[in-house]
Design a binder for these strands. Structure first.
Lengths: 165, 165
DNA sequence: ATAGATGCAAACTCTTTGCAGGTCG
DNA sequence: CGACCTGCAAAGAGTTTGCATCTAT
């Protein structure tokens, strides 16, 4: 059980704290942007976030969304990742891998699988300092397999060829 | 030993063949573009390739470079990859992983390390069909370590913030 | 009061496309 | 000759920035 929250902690104390330490404020746009990213698992693009935020704060600007996504990522409150389709954001900040369906384009989280210490091994063979790594899987997701499409439509999505989120 | 080549096979028969099968031609711009990508290990951007090609064929256009990089990638004659800095191309088409130095931005090839069958495991746990995967390492390369810089300058390069190639 | 945020619009970079003409086979 | 390619210029998409104004603290 989580300690019963006070009635309406509408502004996450933890988040606010994390920001304040660096002299950053938890403004309304910022809070909503973070909330939008955290409330979805579609690994949204900036423009997806923008559209969602606007539903709650119609006056927000795209520039603010970009600026905040970057700030929040820098503070570790969300993750920024780039793929063939541009920038994507991820509210899940704990380690996990990704599976991208080449047919429908959806990105799924997959639990980080035991990888036999690839990181250590690379560090050992190259002499480089490995701080981080990332594993991406590509293929056909369950839904698309059942739909029995034979050919994965997009080898690697062209960068400017629409596929929301 | 490789069977001694005929005097001057200036136009790779194998490549020409691979293209011809699909009704594609090995034109001069195309040949030079492929050659440029294959002759470097910097995982060049389109614009890097463009500049290099222009040294040998000053009249070439950027559009032609883009078109050909895509075509050649589609034919499997080179690899196309997207990262935080945009599109990158790689003349090495055999399986290998990448290490990106967060300090100098250089991308190194690293031999594909035994990964304990991550692919199979993901397929097993998700029920998805895994056709491909990619492992990216991030950290500090040997040179930058020696230079003893303390902080990895760029967490994840902004997309539009120059750093050739 | 004041450093930090915002909105707006313009600037920028990278990438793609339409088209008239050139080239390979 | 016909299909494929090319260069040029212009269009498109995503992302960043300058600036005056506003707002959390």
């Amino acid at each position: 059980m989580i300690p019963k929250k006070t009635p309406g902690p509408r502004r996450s104390a933890a988040t606010e704290q994390a920001l304040r330490v660096r002299g950053l404020r938890l403004t309304r746009p910022r809070r909503i942007i973070l909330d939008v990213v955290r409330s979805t698992d579609v690994h949204p693009s900036a423009s997806f976030v923008y559209r969602r935020v606007r539903r709650r704060l119609p006056s927000v600007s795209l520039a603010t969304v970009y600026r905040n996504l970057r700030t929040l990522a820098a503070e570790g409150l969300l993750m920024e990742r780039a793929d063939a389709s541009g920038l994507r954001f991820d509210g899940k900040t704990d380690p996990h891998d990704h599976f991208t369906c080449l047919r429908c384009g959806r990105i799924y989280d997959v639990p980080v699988s035991p990888n036999g210490g690839v990181r250590t091994r690379v560090a050992a063979t190259t002499g480089f300092e490995v701080l981080n790594h990332r594993i991406e899987f590509y293929g056909r997701c369950g839904a698309c397999r059942r739909r029995c499409g034979r050919t994965p439509t997009a080898g690697q999505r062209r960068r400017y060829g629409r596929q929301e989120p």
